[in-house]
């Protein structure tokens, strides 16, 4: 089977082209879907296996990044989104898409998919937007289907509001134990595994996110979001220092995330 991916677009989302490209490289069929085509009933999420909310500047990040797009989904597509998640299909939000999923309460989320916001993404401590490369480390214990078998990757971060925080710090322990704090910034010169809860210095942690959190998943491990851009490292020649490395050219370090989800769908929905 060829899994179908709904890649959302419109209102300032701007990474839909490369997000479609990486799913297609991973063997899926990706459609660019303007959010309003789902709201007006022209299309239905049910007809897709994976939903991706790409990066961008939806509504210009005004009133908090991801907030207004999150509201469009929370108010306009509430039941479609809940049914999609409850039917066991994977969802990913990247950068602005992650902000959308957090602000609409889908991440870190809960078993009922109640769409209640429990965390947020605050302004980077630097107070401004930055584009730089970071190294990420994945939690091998996590049940996140998107990050299965992954250890470390190098990817660009491109955001101004990526500091993962919450009002109730005990939740961090709950999420940590459940394997939901699935990906963290890490010092590339350290031995694997070495992810830590102590906030790493800038710019290893580009935004001073709590516990160095770069991305989280929901309790089911199907809904995943992260601030960095794995889709921007789809080929080796896009790396930050590839001209210094003795490499065989081909697929980039970010691709495994998308392959994991496509394979998950093939294994679980092939009927």
């Amino acid at each position: 089977m060829i899994p179908k991916v709904a890649v959302l677009s419109g209102f300032g989302i701007n990474c839909e082209t490369e997000t479609m490209a990486v799913f297609e490289m991973a063997g899926a069929k990706a459609d660019r879907i303007h959010v309003n085509r789902l709201v007006n009933g022209e299309l239905n999420l049910n007809d897709y296996h994976i939903m991706a909310v790409p990066g961008g500047f939806s509504f210009g990040d005004h009133l908090g990044s991801g907030r207004l797009m999150g509201n469009r989904l929370r108010f306009g597509l509430r039941e479609q989104v809940r049914n999609f998640v409850k039917s066991g299909k994977p969802v990913i939000g990247i950068c602005n898409g992650f902000q959308v999923l957090v602000k609409m309460g889908l991440l870190p989320g809960d078993d009922d998919v109640s769409l209640t916001q429990t965390a947020s993404l605050a302004l980077n401590d630097s107070g401004h937007y930055e584009n730089r490369w970071a190294t990420l480390e994945f939690d091998p214990q996590s049940n996140c289907i998107w990050t299965k078998g992954m250890t470390r990757i190098r990817v660009p971060v491109r955001h101004g509001e990526g500091k993962f925080v919450t009002a109730d710090k005990t939740l961090l322990d709950v999420w940590g134990e459940a394997g939901q704090l699935v990906v963290k910034y890490v010092d590339p010169s350290s031995e694997y595994p070495s992810s830590s809860n102590d906030i790493l210095p800038y710019p290893i942690s580009p935004n001073q996110s709590w516990r160095n959190i770069a991305g989280v998943c929901d309790p089911s491990g199907l809904v995943f979001g992260l601030m960095p851009h794995p889709e921007a490292n789809h080929s080796t020649w896009l790396g930050a220092t590839w001209t210094r490395e003795d490499i065989e050219h081909g697929e980039g370090e970010g691709m495994m995330i998308f392959r994991n989800a496509v394979n998950y769908v093939i294994d679980n929905f092939n009927n």
């Binding site: 701007n14 490369e18 930055e130 491109r158 851009h229 020649w237 896009l238 930050a240």
Partner: peptide
């Protein structure tokens, strides 16, 4: 320059910065 997005569209091969420390 860091506060310009120079990598959206996932196409940047030679970027504004290079070298071991970027």
């Amino acid at each position: 320059v860091r506060s310009y997005d120079h990598e959206v569209i996932a196409q940047s091969v030679i970027k504004p910065f290079c070298g071991v420390n970027h």
